[in-house]
């Protein structure tokens, strides 16, 4: 392999319709952000899948490490008081 620069990898997020959030759709290669947007339009919205696109270069994403999942996510598991079912109400109160 030569050491010259290849088109970097981009992550593509698409809003399928107004009112919904952008969702990760996949990735692609492009030389710059403008091309990444155009490519995303051509690759990921061929079947009318979107109304808005975000692209971000993959290397700019900071991700949590699954090795830390214990300390990051498990402590939230027993905080039941954050959920409505934790609280006792008389049956007469139908909706709250």
């Amino acid at each position: 392999m030569s050491d010259k620069k290849n088109w970097p990898l981009w992550e593509v997020f698409v809003r399928s319709k107004n009112g919904l959030e952008h969702r990760h759709f996949g990735s692609l290669h492009a030389a710059d952000a403008d091309m990444a947007l155009e490519n995303a339009r051509d690759v990921y919205t061929r079947r009318n899948e979107g109304v808005s696109i975000w692209v971000v270069e993959s290397k700019d994403i900071t991700a949590s490490n699954p090795e830390n999942n214990g300390e990051l996510f498990e402590p939230a598991q027993d905080k039941v008081y954050r959920h409505p079912t934790f609280y006792d109400l008389p049956d007469e109160v139908k909706h709250m």
């Binding site: 392999m1 290849n6 990898l9 996949g26 990735s27 692609l28 290669h29 690759v43 061929r46």
Partner: peptide, 27 residues
């Protein structure tokens, strides 16, 4: 035929998550 290009692209991308580049795969 265009869809096939798209499908190749999705699958190369899935490969790339395992730390190998599309250019290496082409090679």
């Amino acid at each position: 035929v265009q869809d096939e290009a798209g499908h190749g692209l999705y699958l190369y991308s899935a490969c790339e998550t395992l730390g190998i580049s599309r250019d290496e795969l082409y090679e």
